[in-house]
Each structure stands twice: as structure tokens, then as C-alpha cells.
């Protein structure tokens, strides 16, 4: 019916585009079961994720709670809140700190869980594997407040275990938590520690999907364990490694607010104050939603560019996300 009408209304329509439409419809019909499967998810994303996204416009408005998101007046100039952020005397320091802490975490944090997963996979003693797997998984459930307490008992300058030991060996106590020299290492180290076992889970699952006949064949060929890890295990989890890495890149400007907010103090601000902690102190505590939103948008855009770029690179290795 509808196709008929289309034809009468546009008799000179190119046949090429028509067949295109037709083949598209045909493809759609062929995959209809898949689209039905996607439907609930798509509805979810639209309702809970995309519908609220109009909220980002408050980055360009002088948000007033009474007038609401759409009713608030536009900021003048439109980049006012971005400017406020850019003009903070601390802007470049904040950006540097965020990038540095985030990069350290990305670089140092990516490999330990992979190594632990490989070691667990190679472990021939079942009870040891099970115990280590469970133990390393536990720190994930300690909140940063608790971890801060643990760090204090270990690294406090007066009474911390490590410093007590150093002093007893005749050394000078070291201000691990209050000096700019050590603080970032503490941040990165404690994060790695917290996520060692948790991060390994996903790689272990990926390894479970590797075809065991590959290992058997390699064994027959006389390959060493290291060679098998290198040629079978690692390629088997490569796509997951790439996926996680690309997604982490998207959050490069989140250096870990919860952690830093609990752990930092005025003496380490020069190396520890990041975008999110600054936004927290400036934006949320002073009810400046627009500023918080502007910085959030800035972070998201950078993240998106990084993810798109990384995916393009990954595609060259045949491992793209989409």
C-alpha cells in the first residue's frame, strides 16, 4: 500500500535507491529476531540514559533550581563556566595531576591483574589457586576510608609500622603520606593492591574460553610453558585486554575521586589535587552545578575523542570494539 503510493507520487525515483531501501528492509526482516532482542535494552538506554542527557546543557546555562534545567537562562557568554574553570590559577596543575595520576594508574595498573590471572591459570595446586584467588579478591570490598586506616597504620610518620621499622634500623622516618615525593606512589600502589584480584577475574574468564586443544597440540610439539603463555594464553585474552584498555582510556580524566578525596591533605595538593576534587570543592560545595557540569562535559568530550582514536588504532590490529 505504502510502496504503491510512493511509486505514484515519485514515479521518477531512481531504481537504485529503491532497491537499496528494499534490501535494507529485507535485511531488517531477516534479522528481526535480533532487533526484538535488542528492543528492551534500547528502551532502557533511551529512558534512563539518553532522555536525561538534556541535563548537559546546564554547562551552558546559569542553572537555577527553581527555573529547572530548560528554564534557566543561558550563560553569557555561553562558555562562561568553561572559562571560570580555565581561569582558575590551578587549571594547569589540576590537568597535569589528573593526567599523571591517571596515566600511572593505567600503565602500572594494567599489567598486574593480567600477570596474576596468568599465574593463577598456570597454578597446578588447586587449593593454592583457590585461596590466592579469594584473598586477592577481598581488598576490593574495603572502602577507601578503611584502606586509609590501613595505610595510616603502615605509613604514618609517627607510629606507622614501616617508619617504626626504619627508625629502629637507624634511619630517618619518611613522611609517606604528607610529602609530595611519595604521595602519588601511595595512590597508585594502593589502587593496584585493591584491584589485583578483582581485575584478574575477567581475564580468568577469558582464559576459560580458550580452546584446550591448542595447549595439547603445543605440548605435543614440545613447547615450553612460557611459550604457551606467549602464543596461546595471551592471544586468547588479547581482545579483552584491548577492550578494557580502550574503555579505561575513556576515563583518563577520572583519576579516582573517592580515593584521592579520602587520602589527600593540604601538603600534597600540588601533586594530588585533580579535576574532580577541585570541582567538588568549587562546584558542589558552593552549589555551582553549571561549573561542575562544564568540567564533566569537558572530561567526557576528551574521553570520547580518546576512545574513538584508540578504537581506530585497535582496528588496525583487528580488535576494535565496534
Amino acid at each position: 500500500m505504502r510502496t504503491g503510493q510512493l511509486e505514484t507520487n515519485a514515479p521518477r525515483m531512481q531504481p537504485a535507491s529503491q532497491t537499496k531501501l528494499q534490501s535494507a528492509l529485507k535485511a531488517f526482516w531477516r534479522f528481526r529476531a535480533f532487533y526484538v532482542m535488542l528492543l528492551p535494552g534500547v528502551i532502557y538506554f533511551i529512558v534512563f540514559r539518553y532522555f536525561p542527557m538534556y541535563g548537559v546543557i546546564i554547562a551552558f546555562k546559569d542553572f537555577s533550581i527553581m527555573d529547572g534545567i530548560t528554564g534557566s537562562a543561558w550563560a553569557d557568554p555561553w562558555f562562561k563556566h568553561f572559562q571560570a574553570f580555565y581561569e582558575s590559577p590551578y587549571f594547569s596543575q589540576l590537568l597535569t595531576n589528573t593526567l599523571l595520576i591517571s596515566c600511572y594508574k593505567l600503565i602500572w595498573g594494567t599489567f598486574p591483574p593480567i600477570i596474576v590471572a596468568i599465574l593463577l591459570n598456570e597454578c597446578r595446586i588447586r587449593w593454592l589457586k583457590s585461596i590466592v584467588q579469594t584473598l586477592t579478591y577481598m581488598p576490593h570490598f574495603l572502602s577507601w576510608v578503611i584502606i586509609f586506616g590501613i595505610l595510616l597504620t603502615l605509613f604514618s610518620q609517627n607510629g606507622g609500622l614501616v617508619n617504626r621499622w626504619i627508625v629502629e634500623m637507624g634511619g630517618e622516618s619518611i613522611p609517606f603520606l604528607t610529602s609530595t615525593e611519595y604521595f602519588r606512589s601511595i595512590l597508585v600502589g594502593s589502587e593496584i593492591w585493591q584491584n589485583l584480584g578483582w581485575g584478574a577475574i575477567i581475564y580468568l574468564a577469558a582464559m576459560a574460553g580458550i580452546d584446550p586443544t591448542l595447549y595439547e597440540a603445543a605440548k605435543v610439539d614440545g613447547a615450553s610453558r612460557m611459550r604457551m603463555i606467549w602464543h596461546i594464553t595471551l592471544p586468547g585474552i588479547r581482545s579483552i585486554i584491548v577492550l578494557l584498555f580502550v574503555l579505561k582510556l575513556g576515563h583518563l580524566l577520572d583519576a579516582g575521586f573517592d580515593q584521592i578525596y579520602i587520602l589527600y591533605n593540604i601538603q600534597v595538593y600540588p601533586v594530588a589535587d585533580i579535576l574532580d576534587t577541585w570541582v567538588y570543592r568549587t562546584g558542589l560545595q558552593q552549589l555551582n552545578f553549571s561549573l561542575a557540569s562544564a568540567v564533566g562535559l569537558f572530561k567526557s568530550v576528551i574521553g570520547l575523542i580518546l576512545v574513538l582514536g584508540a578504537n581506530r588504532v585497535a582496528k588496525k590490529w583487528g580488535e576494535s570494539i565496534w
Binding site: F51, P52, M53, Y54, G55, I69, G250, G296, L304, V307
Partner: peptide, 11 residues
């Protein structure tokens, strides 16, 4: 959606 969200109030 991993990168962008509308924020607390609209949600």
C-alpha cells in the same frame, strides 16, 4: 553512555 551522562537531576 559510558562517557556522557545527563547528571543527577534529570535522572
Amino acid at each position: 553512555t559510558l562517557l556522557f551522562s545527563g547528571g543527577l537531576i534529570p535522572t
